[in-house]
Design a protein around this nucleic acid. Structure first.
Lengths: 213, 213
DNA sequence: TTATTTTTATGCGAAACAGTATGAAAAAGC
DNA sequence: GCTTTTTCATACTGTTTCGCATAAAAATAA
């Protein structure tokens, strides 16, 4: 669908819009909205100022496009992580690892979640951004809550726990990973916390050989 | 010590340095380093530009002073929360409530932890800031780890758990509260997660009559 | 009163900033 | 080959930014 359906009429554009948006996202991610100048964005995307403006509108609109693109990407990755089978323990572990794969970058070092970093950096200045970020986080909350509900029904969680309250906290732990990633903690340090978090959610040491079911 | 020891010689300053730093902190907190202009800071502090410069140096230095002041204040509040007696459950609850008292503001709405918000906003641009923030968080990590170690020795935690790993995650939950506060969640929503978090750390519903061992 | 010291007030200046106008370049249509 | 359409490249405009220079104001000291 995205491939050129017919030969476009005028001069062909010299950039790939999605790649450019990805590069712009990286600048916002590292420097925040206010800290990213149009010169920075222009240099990173390889587009000059008027092309940027023509393609994405002004800086605010570009930022919101970056936010939307990130949410689409991370949503897709999370759906993938939810889908794969395995025990609740395994699914949660996969979810946290997926989150970390977004928060840690080879080239830029730890930068955290784009929503929690660049997004929330603007939260007190632009309420639309704040709302978008909040919605994104709550969407993930509901995903994990649903997961815990289903797994509780299968007996993977004790019937006494509240899967909604627990799911929300499990979701919040990703926010904690984001903060620590941006604070510079290493992949090893962060990955070491995952089994601890999963253990807290699922019941500590090992599900126990669980011959019961 | 801080009171005027003798009559100062020249024209008296028209501002209270610490109050001015507090006001500047609020601007950085809401708008970030790059988003806060010297005009904003000047208006908030009531100091004109040259006075600001004379008192705190340039914008970077002012920001780092704000960071230091925040760390001093929050450290003091946390020491207080650690000191008061009570069960581990009670102490942890008090610690989380103390954290929330910093993250939520009457006038500005939820703004999160200054370290995690304004501080980490600069983390990828200014490595000294990143290191300061990381150190601050790790100091709190060690505090909670020590608390759990002592309480485990008193039998308030099962001997099987690793108090270091658990303490680190307990500390990270404050980072999660910070993110959600800044995302606009209400005090009620945030406070509702505290007993869930404390329950995860201490052993869920109530330490349970725990007849098993 | 007069001199000295310290802070405030006005406002300057160079640089960076966001956004745009103008014209050249590169493709398709005829 | 010429026109039309779309994008690129240069450069401009007006504003905002940060930091500081200069001079007035307000206190003490002599």
């Amino acid at each position: 669908m995205t491939e050129t359906p017919a030969k476009r009429r005028g001069r062909p554009r010299a950039y790939d819009p999605d790649l450019a948006l990805a590069k712009a996202t990286e600048i916002f991610w590292a420097q925040g909205f206010a800290g990213a100048s149009l010169d920075d964005l222009s240099a990173a995307t390889g587009m000059n100022r008027p092309s940027l403006y023509g393609a994405f509108g002004d800086k605010q609109t570009l930022f919101k496009s970056a936010l939307d693109r990130y949410m689409d990407r991370s949503r897709a990755a999370m759906i993938e992580a939810f889908r794969g089978g395995g025990s609740l323990r395994e699914v949660l572990t996969r979810i946290y690892h997926t989150a970390l794969s977004f928060y840690l970058s080879e080239d830029f070092g730890g930068r955290g979640c784009f929503l929690a970093s660049a997004g929330l950096g603007q939260a007190l200045v632009d309420d639309e951004v704040r709302q978008t970020v909040a919605d994104g986080m709550h969407e993930l909350d509901r995903g994990i809550e649903g997961l815990l509900q289903r797994r509780q029904a299968r007996g993977e969680l004790p019937p006494t726990v509240d899967p909604i309250a627990l799911g929300r906290v499990a979701s919040m732990m990703m926010n904690a990973l984001s903060v620590r990633a941006r604070a510079g903690e290493t992949r090893e340090q962060l990955e070491a916390t995952i089994p601890v978090m999963v253990g807290l959610i699922c019941g500590s040491p090992v599900p126990e050989p669980q011959a019961s079911e």
